[in-house]
Amino acid sequence: MNFAPRAPYSTAPTQPFGIPQIWSSAFWGGVWGLIWVAIAPRFRHNKSYWLAALLFGAILPTLVAWFVVAPLKGQPLAGGWKLVGIVTGLLVNGAWGVGTAGLLRLFSTRE
């Protein structure tokens, strides 16, 4: 049974260096996480923190994927402007932002 078009932990090589997809995703997730760590102190740990995390995750990584990464890989901008792809990118990356903010808050020693 194929529930999704791609395997969740793909080891397929990425372009241009042939690094397995899972390692590439982990690396870039870490880079975006460091960016979030740098800007998170600007938000109080209330609703604005969580909203900022959601918007950061939904917007910035998604725009970079659509307008920087896709052209480098020879793919259409914004997934060809298909609504399903646009919504999926925003939701998945927004969930990543909230999850990353939650982990930062959980493991942060600063109150």
Rank of each mutant, 00 (worst) to 15 (best):
A52I: 05
V98K: 04
E111L: 12
L106Y: 11
I39T: 05
G33K: 03
L83T: 15
Y9I: 15
Q75L: 15
T14F: 00
L103S: 09
W66I: 09
T109W: 04
L60N: 09
L90E: 01
G18L: 04
Q15D: 12
W50I: 03
I19Q: 12
I59L: 11
F17A: 12
S25H: 06
Y49V: 08
L77E: 02
L63I: 12
T62P: 02
H45P: 11
R44F: 01
W32M: 09
R105N: 07
P61R: 00
Q75A: 15
L83D: 08
Y49D: 00
A7R: 13
G33E: 07
T88Q: 06
K73D: 15
L90P: 01
W66V: 04
P8Q: 05
W32V: 03
G102P: 10
F27C: 08
V68R: 02
F17C: 04
A78Q: 08
V92Y: 00
N93I: 09
G80H: 10
V84C: 01
P16Y: 05
Q15E: 14
H45N: 13
P16L: 08
R105E: 10
W28T: 11
W96A: 14
L51K: 04
A38N: 05
N2S: 14
A101I: 04
A12D: 11
L104K: 06
A78N: 05
F107G: 12
T14N: 00
Q21R: 13
P61L: 11
I86R: 02
R42Y: 12
G33D: 06
N93H: 14
A40W: 03
A52G: 08
E111W: 03
R105F: 04
L90H: 04
P8M: 08
G29H: 05
N46V: 09
L55F: 10
V69F: 11
W66Y: 09
V37C: 12
T62S: 12
F56D: 01
G97I: 01
W23C: 03
G29L: 02
L90D: 00
P8A: 06
V68Q: 03
L103E: 00
L83C: 03
V98N: 04
V84L: 09
G74H: 07
A101N: 00
L103I: 12
G33T: 14
A12H: 05
N2P: 06
V31H: 02
L72G: 13
S25M: 08
P41Y: 07
S48H: 12
G57F: 02
W36N: 06
W96Q: 01
G18T: 04
G99A: 09
W50S: 05
P5Y: 02
V37R: 13
L103A: 14
L77R: 06
V64N: 02
W36I: 08
G80T: 14
W28H: 11
W66P: 04
A4M: 09
T109P: 01
